[in-house]
Nucleic acid binder design. Structure first.
Lengths: 189, 189
DNA sequence: AGCATATGCCAACACCTGTTGACTTTTACC
DNA sequence: GGTAAAAGTCAACAGGTGTTGGCATATGCT
């Protein structure tokens, strides 16, 4: 049982940081506000995490483990992915933190890339899909775009859409990005 | 010929503001930096635009006129829209400004909503599409998500994809959102 | 008990932010 | 050419930011 007390405030800081970063974005989330939420002194944040950048890095450090899709048939992969991502987005605000901050913070961009390019693409490669990077990118574009409209921008019909309907709309799109033959390349000019 | 000189610096400020807001987002784009880019004094920005908020409102005030799609057959509407949006995104950085700032600035969100919910949805209504708001929202989710990955996050395969390939991938998705019968509504519980 | 150490609070720092007012220069009209 | 208004400059303000060091308190070990 190593240092019980400090660990609890460390965790409180991290939780408050996640909430603030997710709600306000990187620049508007101030250390003072985070400290106030955690009911401790701003100096504690610095003592425990060194700097705002490092605090953010710690707050954004979690692993989004994609489910093992090795045995999922390619046809139903779209719906499976859609449902998984939806659950993941609503489970906690980790991904919302990443999305809100990725627009101005390079660390968040890298983390986000780690999920799609470095985790989804290799998983697709297992399924022997061609151009896995392109397909992973397309999936990312639809998933992130939907999350943007639903959780950040709050576009009315998207924000209130029931989960099942979301899966019904997004599933086929993701499925097409994963299974449809790549379009013939035209002249670059 | 009303006040020539002032109009030129007004325009210079606005141009610099668009660039900075688009590159850095609302909070990190400082009035001092914008003024420096326009090679004028920060006080001039205030004299001409009153406040940072009003400057931003002015910088984000442009009309994205969607093309008249009244005579485009529904089948090819997806590709037409995909190509139009792509052109519009790359013509200037207006839309990039909106997207980068919409994450933390409410004015930008409203402008963005004005494009999709208040402009695209009614246009769809003309084509007698059912649930035009939902479909406009879905189109927004894919268009914005792709723009996010391509212009803001810079995901490698998406950022470098040739325009024709973009249209080939996104066109059918948008077409489906516009033409596919809405999925049966399940229980809300 | 006493003491070293971990934990917490406070006040201040240096800097940057939007914003303001007074002052000087340029412009344009009679 | 003189003069009033427009355009531009400069310095400063008030407030907020991340960050730091010193000091008080609590904790846990021997």
């Amino acid at each position: 049982m190593a240092e019980k007390k400090s660990d609890r405030t460390r965790a409180a800081i991290l939780a408050a940081a996640r909430e603030r970063f997710g709600a306000d974005g990187y620049e508007r989330a101030t250390i003072r506000a985070i400290a106030a939420d955690a009911a401790i002194d701003p100096a504690m944040v610095m003592r425990y995490y060194g700097s705002k950048e490092k605090l953010f890095a710690a707050a954004a450090d979690f692993d989004i483990r994609l489910p093992d899709i090795g045995d999922v048939p390619l046809e139903s992969l779209g719906e499976v992915l859609a449902r998984h991502f939806l659950e993941r987005w609503e489970a906690d605000d980790s991904l919302r933190v990443l999305l809100r901050t990725a627009v101005t913070n390079e660390v968040a961009v890298e983390r986000m890339r780690g999920i799609f390019a470095a985790q989804l693409a290799p998983t697709l490669r297992v399924q022997a899909v061609d151009q896995p990077d392109v397909r992973a990118g397309l999936v990312a574009s639809q998933v992130l775009g939907f999350a943007l409209c639903r959780y950040i921008l709050g576009f009315p019909p998207i924000a209130t859409m029931p989960d099942d309907e979301v899966v019904a709309w997004l599933g086929p799109t993701l499925a097409r990005y994963l299974t449809s033959p790549a379009p013939r390349r035209l002249r670059h000019a």
